[in-house]
């Protein structure tokens, strides 16, 4: 079923997220821009997928950077994993969002928008981060700032053998492929409680949205910079697996 309040969480900006984080009438999922129906009960599955894709998280004594962790259950699970495995955890987000995370000696909170809002981090941790996670964040970066700058400055932080997961990227090309399929049409009809067939127009330019071209462009840029980069699917049991995918980047 389509969530009633979905428009409230459309086209959010960094400033909108600051306001959501401060709104104590919202659930943790809503504070990070998701209707409860989209995320509640699914974050354990998302966490398992993230851990599977980032083997460095399962080691010990690493330095982990989360860009835009938010404050929902997923962030708390990452924090717990870092505590259990003896990692150093660096969280970059707005001060409003960071105040919801626990304050413990292994956690460093850096308030600001990545990358321009945290120049010290970029200097002090260049080539020193073992794992970077940024989940359900990149499409806001694409809409609001320079995605290449975000990417280049993230990659500069990675240590040798380090891994970065840019997770949960909505890809409009993937979405169209899905909604052109019988499975997608059935999904849409259940979701809208109607018999309508979803509109999926191919071969039209949608310059403001992330599509296959952008995904391939990012991979190309990473590889040109000397990193390995791959598009990874999400498991079917994740809430947006039919229209989102992940990018895994590793420094050889």
């Amino acid at each position: 079923m389509k969530p009633k309040n979905i428009e409230r969480f459309s086209n959010l900006t960094f400033e909108d997220f600051r306001r959501l984080a401060n709104d104590d009438t919202l659930s943790p999922c809503e504070k990070i821009g998701f209707p409860n129906e989209y995320r509640e009960g699914k974050e354990t599955l998302i966490f398992a997928d993230v851990v599977r894709k980032l083997p460095g998280l399962s080691l010990s004594g690493k330095t982990v950077l989360d860009i835009g962790p938010g404050c929902s259950g997923l962030a708390m699970m990452i924090v717990k994993l870092c505590r259990d495995n003896g990692h150093r955890f660096i969280a970059v987000d707005s001060v409003e969002m960071l105040r919801h995370l626990p304050s413990e000696p292994f956690i460093t909170k850096t308030a600001g928008r990545f990358p321009n809002g945290c120049p010290d981090l970029l200097t002090t941790h260049q080539g020193k981060i073992d794992v970077i996670l940024t989940y359900s964040v990149f499409h806001y970066v694409y809409a609001e700032s320079n995605p290449f700058d975000f990417l280049d400055k993230s990659l500069a932080l990675l240590a040798e053998g380090g891994q970065m997961l840019i997770g949960d990227i909505p890809n409009v090309s993937k979405r169209k492929r899905f909604f052109s399929s019988n499975a997608g049409i059935r999904f849409h009809q259940v979701y809208t409680q109607t018999a309508e067939v979803p509109v999926a127009t191919h071969n039209c330019l949608e310059p403001g949205r992330i599509d296959d071209g952008v995904m391939m462009g990012i991979i190309h840029r990473c590889r040109l910079a000397g990193f390995d980069a791959y598009v990874l699917p999400q498991p079917d049991d994740l809430p947006m697996a039919n229209r989102r995918e992940d990018l895994l980047i590793t420094r050889p």
Partner: peptide
Amino acid sequence: NWDSVAVLATIALIDEQYNITVPAK
């Protein structure tokens, strides 16, 4: 060819040429 890749490249071009960020939106 004003597609998503062109937009991405133009964001980078503007950044490189003028040192400012003009977002995709």
